Structure formats: C-alpha cells, structure tokens
Simulated scan of single mutants.
Amino acid sequence: MIPRLAAVLAALLLSGCAAFFTPPQTAALLAQPPADLPLSAERDEVPFFAQTRDHCGPAALATVLADTGLPADPDRLADAVFLPSRAGSLQLEMLGGARRQGAVATRLPPDLQALLREVAAGHAVIVLQNLGLDFAPRWHYAVVVGYDLTQRQLLLRSGTTRRQALPLRTFEYTWARAGRWAIAVLPPERLPATASEAQALDAAVGFERVAPPARAAQAYRTLLARWPGNA
C-alpha cells in the first residue's frame, strides 16, 4: 500500500505544478513577444498592504484603490467584502467593493498578455489564483505590478510579500486554475488598456448602480470617447 500511495501522491504533485511543461499563453508570449510591448515594466510606486488572516481580498483591493488615490483601509474593506462563512472574498464582492469606493471595476480578457499590457499602461491589476489543486483549491488574490520577459517573471504584491517575483509559467498555472479572472480598478476618467467594449460597458453599468449620478455620467463619457458609436 505504501508504494501505491507514494505513486498517487507523486502523480498529484506533477499534475498540480506541471513542473516540466510551459503552459500555452506563457509559451506563446515567450516564443514571440509582441513588438509593441516593452520587455519589462514595473510600477514600484504601487502601495502595499500586507495581508492579515484570510484577508487577501481586502488587502488586494486596498492596494489598487490607493494606487488610484481613493480611500483604502483594508480593515474597513474587510467589513464590506470578506465573508466569514467562506473564509474569503467572492469575485462579486470584490467588484462591488471597488465600485462603492468610487472606482470602476472592469473584467479583463483572460489573457496573460492583457495583464502585461495593463501594467505597461500604468495600471495595477487584481488577479485571482488557485494556489492549491483543482479538487482542493486554495484561493488567493494578488496584485500584478510588473513583469520581466527576459527573466520570465511576473511581479506581484501578494500576501505578506511586497515584491513577489513569480515565474510566468507558475503564475499561469495558478491563474488558469482560478478561471483566469482579473480586474482593473480605475477612476471613471480612465479605461483599462485591454478591456473590450462589452467589458467596459458592463463595468460602467455596474458602477452606475452605486455611484453618484455625476460620476456615473463620467464613466459613460469616458467609454464614449473610445467607442463613440456605442448606442
């Protein structure tokens, strides 16, 4: 029984980290980096709020809100987005928490290159990772603040680590296991660099539900400046 158990555990570890394989988006990005994308970028000025307990969601949200100059108190945000019954924060709470603080929270394309382009455009990005396995998940929110294609690294504000340098392929595995979920949190005067028209419109509609009318109108004006034909 012991050899059989060891074999099962070994198989699980290999399937979890896929140590000898590079996932598809990382492989494509490294094989042919886009000519219009800088090889590296880092926003060292992005604030850092160390996570306490299971409060990676409030810490990540405080990080991006502070980066845009909006109120950012992790303890107060925890009251709004942390669910004790789940020992964490759901994506809907993260979106709603950002909007209630005056920011437009926009879903981004599920593409690694989109994360890099947002950083290059000067935007920090919240991502959801699964640091466990598919059948035993360990959910975690972090903030992408930089990357280096020559070093094959992504740079994160994560947990209690101000500057976590994570191999791109490791990040992609953990991100893919969480559904490649990512959001940009910006004031209504700015749009993410990579969001589609549909994603930007969905974000503006969500913002309108909680924002003062003048700020909601600003979000729509910003959207129409990029897509003037939107009905």
Rank of each mutant, 00 (worst) to 15 (best):
A62T: 07
A136T: 00
A72Y: 10
L156D: 04
A80E: 11
A105P: 07
I126G: 02
T68A: 15
G146R: 10
H123M: 13
R53D: 15
D148S: 12
R138W: 04
D75N: 04
A121S: 14
V104I: 06
P71D: 15
L115Y: 00
Q51E: 14
L149S: 14
L154I: 15
N130G: 02
T63W: 10
T52W: 05
R53P: 06
M94A: 12
G88P: 05
H55S: 12
A62F: 10
A114G: 01
F82M: 10
G88K: 13
M94V: 13
F135Q: 01
Y147G: 04
H140G: 04
R180N: 08
D148C: 09
P71W: 13
V145M: 12
V81Y: 10
Q151K: 10
A165N: 04
D67H: 14
R138S: 10
A114C: 07
T161M: 14
G132Q: 03
G179S: 12
P109A: 08
T52K: 11
V127Y: 01
T106I: 12
G97K: 13
T174R: 01
A78M: 05
L166D: 05
A98G: 15
F82K: 12
Y173N: 01
H123T: 15
A114D: 02
P84A: 13
A60N: 03
Q151F: 10
R162I: 09
P110N: 09
R53W: 08
V81G: 11
A103L: 07
T150I: 02
G122W: 08
R138G: 02
A60Q: 06
R76K: 10
P58N: 05
L156M: 12
P110Y: 09
L115Q: 09
A142T: 05
W181K: 04
G57I: 09
T150G: 05
T150E: 14
W175C: 00
T52Y: 06
P167V: 13
R99W: 07
E93D: 14
A114S: 11
V125T: 14
V119T: 11
E93S: 15
A165F: 13
M94G: 14
T160Q: 14
L131Y: 07
W181T: 07
A178F: 02
L65I: 05
L131V: 03
Q153C: 10
Q91N: 11
A80H: 08
P137I: 00
A103Y: 02
D75W: 04
D134Y: 00
G122I: 08
L131N: 15
R152I: 09
Q164E: 02
A142H: 02
A120F: 06
A121Y: 12
A78F: 03
G69N: 13
S85G: 04
T68I: 06
A120I: 10
R157V: 05
R53N: 14
V127N: 01
A124P: 14
P110G: 08
A176K: 00
L70Q: 12
E118F: 08
